[in-house]
Amino acid sequence: MKLGIMVNEGPYTHQASDSAYQFAKAALAKGHEISRVFFYHDGVNNGSRLTVPPQDERNIVKRWSELAAEHKLDLVVCIAAAQRRGLMDKSEAKRHGKDADNIAPGFRISGLGQLIEAGIEADRLVVFGD
């Protein structure tokens, strides 16, 4: 089955991103397809490659990047939510005259339409938030 996932909170403060990750991993292990993971609200912060958690702690951002690489997941960060919160890719940084970008590997920035599209294309959409 095709599953879409929405993550509405950032890493570490809330459990939402952890729950979504464990759910995604289990779904993939069971042979389901994750058609898209859409990050919204503070959830966009899951896509910052500048997080440096203590070494004995899970690395939430890296974990998403690795899962994306392994299973060709489409990790989409909402552009409007990302701009508010300072999450940028190269072209966004250039467009807004910022001196750096911070998006993690495997993530891409796109519009809210991608969320609606995920809702239309996937057989189920599961929302994780707080």
């Binding site: 919204y40 409007a80 519009g111 809210l112 339409g113 969320l115 609606i116 599209e117 239309i120």
Partner: peptide, 9 residues
């Protein structure tokens, strides 16, 4: 904002 964008679909 999602509702307004989603309306186009």
């Amino acid at each position: 904002e999602v509702v307004l964008i989603g309306a186009a679909f």
